[in-house]
Nucleic acid binder design. Structure first.
Lengths: 198, 198
DNA sequence: CCCTTTATATATCAAATCAATATAAACTTC
DNA sequence: GAAGTTTATATTGATTTGATATATAAAGGG
């Protein structure tokens, strides 16, 4: 999906700066759905301005750098509704965790369990975040659809991971009395590329 | 995750051509996990050849163009295991469907239901594909982990979508006796960008 | 008191990635 | 036998990402 469409979607809810749009996809309502980075957002906003799909006002702030607050125009709303009326592409998942875990046979059992622990942490955090931003419970089913979908998926993930983790721990302690308790791996960094000259 | 690492992972299972690697991520074992396109695979294989992490033999075929079949070397296996020992990045989802559905209030109810129907079709197909490639049931839990995870997630998705679709249909037929049966949208195309000069 | 981290806020750019397209032969279907 | 699909490889242009730079300020540790 085009970064311009994603930005318009964010602005359909409320006026926002580029930074705030990013946060919507990082932590906010879109966090379970899609992702965009600054490198796409700022050029997209520039183009949207040129096309008069959005307007921009500068808000001075005490201390912090000036904010450029973008608003969607009626023409922008029309363009957005037109864009989302085309049939969407299939969902795409990118999970380094699952990719690595699919090679669990090649890794020490303790590493596999530690990896599942990290994975569990991630999905527990997402579940909590989603639960806390759940709005009115009596809202119509269209409005709660996406939130409830995310909730159902994350709950399934957490339940599955907890069960399998425990099975692996029991199995491992049966094979050898090694240390496979709730070990945590070191702090998070993106997975290393496959070497080469940096 | 680096395309080189993804290619090495594919070759850990078996020798393959660039085309076959692509299929593993499109239809095969990695389809629920990650995605890579030709534009990443072919340059990656070239680099892997230079580093002697893979070898390449040309297989002549009757009729069809020659196949370049790549094999992972012992050094390649070592490099792969090293690459996957780094802590992985968090999962990323990109769902145009959910993004569009989150604006369901702005769309005609019939369109929303048609969209959910498409979504259901997609996940039913994925579920079937995953079910058919499920291997030995007595395999150790590490080996079945990723497949079972995908199965659990897809089943949750399908169950959720079926339930919500029916709720929306009942609600819609209560509001007005409009045609909201199992309508199907036109054939699949990627979602349109937000206009501009093509 | 200094240093690091975290947060707000915008912007740029090289490197990686994707979607689309070109080529080509064989197989399929009508 | 013409047209379309599938198998297979490869390239290109456009887009996206991830990293980095700049600027300010608050918070916390040592």
């Amino acid at each position: 999906m085009d970064a311009k469409t994603l930005c318009l979607g964010a602005l359909m809810h409320d006026d926002a700066s580029g930074y705030e749009i990013r946060k919507l996809f990082e932590d906010g309502v879109f966090s379970a759905i899609h992702d965009v980075s600054f490198g796409s957002i700022y050029p997209a906003l520039t183009v949207l301005l040129e096309r008069d799909w959005v307007t921009c006002r500068v808000a001075e702030q005490d201390g912090r750098p000036d904010k450029k607050i973008y608003s969607i125009t009626p023409a922008g709303r029309a363009a957005f509704l037109d864009a989302i009326s085309s049939p969407p592409a299939p969902d795409k998942m990118r999970s380094e965790m699952l990719f690595i875990l699919s090679f669990g046979d090649y890794l020490p059992r303790a590493d596999v369990i530690a990896l599942i622990d990290r994975y569990l942490e991630e999905y527990e955090a997402r579940l909590d975040a989603l639960k806390s931003c759940t709005c009115a419970e009596d809202a119509p089913p269209v409005r709660t659809f996406v939130n409830d979908f995310g909730l159902a998926m994350y709950e399934t993930a957490v339940t599955f991971l907890r069960k399998r983790r425990d099975e692996l721990v029991i199995q491992a302690s049966g094979e050898a009395n090694s240390n496979v308790g709730p070990a945590r791996m070191s702090e998070h960094r993106p997975v290393a590329a496959v070497g080469g000259t940096p």
